[in-house]
Amino acid sequence: MFFLHNLERRVTLHPSYFGRNMHELVTTKLVKDVEGTCAGDYYIIAIMDTFDVSEGRILPGSGLAEFTVGYRAVVWRPFKGEVVDAIAYSVNPHGMFAQAGPLRLFVSSHLMPDEIQYDANATPPQFTNNADMVIEPGTHVRVKIIGMRTEVGEMWAIGSINGDFLGCLQA
């Protein structure tokens, strides 16, 4: 689910950049550092704007200036039970891996409807129910997240396509 989230971060700036446009540089750096990262249990998708760039404080020892910057960002936090659209990128007998934006998902073959079977003979290997549902790398799938794991700088989820309206997305 997407949220607008007010966040704060400390940004350091090398002294050689001190000058008129320092605040711009701070913002630039902030964007560069933060956008697209995973902050524990959510991803920071984009920074809307910054406000409240504090005075810089010189850090003893390094000479870098540290600014505390408040900013507003669009974040995405996947939840257990949330249904997301993803793209399968790897299929193996145990299940398939899919990517929903920055989030990697694994859908175990146990968590697929019974009629969907792994077909190793197809190229590329696929999960299929021998009808309309064919899951191979690149297929768009709709997945329900049933478990999440968060690590530093990474998130990882287990999904299920065992349910109504889950699974392959037709066109």
Partner: peptide
């Protein structure tokens, strides 16, 4: 790992380290 399947008291899980069940 994360639990993917439960039958009675047998639990199948997908390990974090190696992604094996």
């Amino acid at each position: 790992g994360m639990v993917v399947k439960i039958v009675d008291d047998r639990v199948t899980l997908l390990t974090d380290q190696t992604n094996t069940e």
